[in-house]
Design a protein around this nucleic acid. Structure first.
Length: 293
DNA sequence: GTAATGTCCAGCGCAAGTTC
DNA sequence: GAACTTGCGCTGGACATTAC
């Protein structure tokens, strides 16, 4: 294995993590990792002292370019924009698990949309990857002081909008499992006890498939919406529990066709947010997780 | 001592309103 | 309709304060 390939294997997960958190797209993040690597191979690697920082800088710049060109698209996006769902595995340590679950969750990536590209880059490098400001400054071509400012501002925006959540995977899984079971069996009392009164449902059809164009607020409306969807569900639709973006979620599929991916935010044993990703363009990469028959 | 955080201020761009 | 003014938000630099 060449030095370049060793570096690629070593930093691929980090670069993908950065790109995915910045862009919210699995396929685009993979493209950026690939492009970063190919560009890096053409450089004089001996002249680069800190290869990790250099690779991160290259990936960040590609992400910023992508975000700038994507911004216009997202401004005219039909309905709420949600990130492409990412099927995740268990983190190595409990500490990693908490960080990964929080910074990967759909609600967290949804909040990233409130930030400008530069804010997003600085915020992710600092909050998620704990780079110091000197490193961040060199990666985003800004001064250290400015990065501090950008970060505090970004944090202020995130804190204003953040929905509180408890990120115990097992407890959340229990709540969601109970909710799905009660919903399926028409146990209204149980359903009501598991869903917060101020729950919000976001559905992303991207203008390609039918979805709610605005977030649905309040428990009554959300449950009515879900009941409506369930009544129209195609025959043979299977519900598959999956770890989506570090949180327990579900995928709905028939054969190898994925219909949607659903993620939840749970707070104090109740569902606070529901994210339904219906846009087929955001589900293509999940087909390998669908049952064959 | 160093890093992190907060505050103030100036410059810039943009949109909306006003005037000619 | 074009030119100008005004207000607002965003950005970045300088500096003070706080935390470790």
């Amino acid at each position: 294995m060449s030095n370049g390939e060793i570096l690629y294997q070593q930093y691929k997960p980090l670069l993908f993590s950065i790109a995915y958190r910045m862009i919210g797209s699995v396929t685009e993040a993979e493209d950026i990792v690939q492009e970063t690597y190919l560009t890096f191979l053409q450089l004089d690697q001996q002249a680069i002292t800190d290869k990790k920082a250099y690779l991160c800088k290259m990936a960040a710049n590609l992400c910023l370019d992508t975000l700038k060109s994507a911004r216009k698209k997202r401004e005219t996006y039909v309905g709420p924009w949600l990130p492409e769902p990412l099927i995740t595995k268990a983190a190595a340590t409990p500490e990693d698990k908490v960080i990964e679950q929080e910074s990967l969750s759909v609600s967290y990536l949804f909040l990233m949309e409130k930030l400008s590209p530069a804010e997003r880059a600085v915020f992710i490098f600092r909050e998620v990857f704990a780079f110091n400001y000197r490193e961040i400054a060199s990666m985003v071509d800004k001064t250290e002081a400015n990065c501090r400012k950008i970060f505090t501002r970004a944090k202020g925006k995130i804190d204003r909008h953040q929905t509180p959540s408890h990120l115990s995977y097992e407890k959340n899984q229990q709540v969601i499992g109970d909710f799905l079971h009660a919903f399926k069996n028409g146990d209204t009392e149980k359903v009501l006890s598991l869903v917060s009164e101020d729950v919000i449902l976001y559905s992303d059809g991207g203008g390609v498939v039918k979805a709610a164009l605005k977030p649905i607020e309040t428990r009554d409306r959300v449950l009515a919406f879900l009941t409506g969807i369930a009544a129209k569900a195609p025959k043979g639709l299977q519900t598959l529990p999956q770890s989506i973006n570090g949180q327990p979620g579900i995928i709905h599929a028939i054969g190898t066709k994925i219909y949607n991916a659903v993620s939840f935010t749970v707070y104090e044993q109740r569902i606070k947010q529901i994210f339904i990703i219906l846009n087929p363009e955001k589900l293509n990469h999940l087909s390998c997780f669908a049952p064959i028959s």
